[in-house]
Amino acid sequence: MYLSLGLFGNAIVSGLLLGGFYAAVTIGISISFGMLDIANIAHPGFIVLGSYGAWYANSRFGVDPLIASVVLMPAFYLLGAGIYQLYYHAFERRGDASLRGLAFFFGLLFITEVGLILVFGVDYRLVRAPYIGPSLYLGALEFPLRLLVPFLASLAMVGLLWLYLSRSFTGRAILAVAQDAEALRIMGANPQRIKRIAFALSIATTSLAGAILIVIQPVEPSIGRDYIGRVFAIAVLGGLGSFAGTVVAAILLGIMESLTATFYGPSWSPAIAFGFLLLALAVKPSGMFGR
């Protein structure tokens, strides 16, 4: 009895910590899809790109993967700004964002994956850091640092982003563009510029999210696909664009997956994400005519 209770408790703890990581991978989608209405299904591909950035810095120069990813963030920001510019000119401006826009991001997802395979091969890659291995204990509960440190890093990133969006002028303009692009134009701000900044920010988050991913588990180029269902499920159930909702939904999914993995086996956890996604779509009350 004690054993199964301990098992249960530890499953909850690791689920909670996993949820923190899911918040990091989803927060970018909450911005791009939730606020800007850009269904960037290539997002997980950029996260894997972030993992490889952290891996390269770690294995080549011995830099801590999380610190390396923060240093690499500006590069991801610029990448995001460039992609938005292309997207805007090719699709959004022509009002043709649906079919071709989706296919465009699908193509990007695929190109990053195959590009990584061509450069680095299909082997699993992992990083070294002092917090990978040891654990903290609180009674019978185990807090692996490998999960705890990413959890804290993730919450710090989400918190800083939230501060930026709610306090700075540009941040508030991003929130406004999510509501009504036309009103923003009247105020004298350029929606295209604001959206470019917001989208670039969403891609910048993938640098740290990718580093967190490779701290938690070994990474190979096609692993991003496993996260597509998860990130969109969390973003939708979290209430598209709400940061607090995203964190709550992420932790909820983390705990559910962890319980499933503990009691049924890890090979079933991707199915949980899909069930979660369908639930999210069914619960979403606004339906096809709302947002």
Binding site: I228, G229, A233, P270, L277, L278, L281, G287, M288
Partner: peptide, 28 residues
């Protein structure tokens, strides 16, 4: 039936996740 009442993009995302689940199902 599950997703077509919603905006098209949700259908697309659901199909993407469905392929992953179908694979999970076959692996098991």
């Amino acid at each position: 039936y599950l997703t077509l009442r919603l905006r098209g993009v949700f259908f697309s995302i659901a199909t993407l996740a469905m392929a992953v689940v179908a694979q999970t199902f076959v692996v098991n």
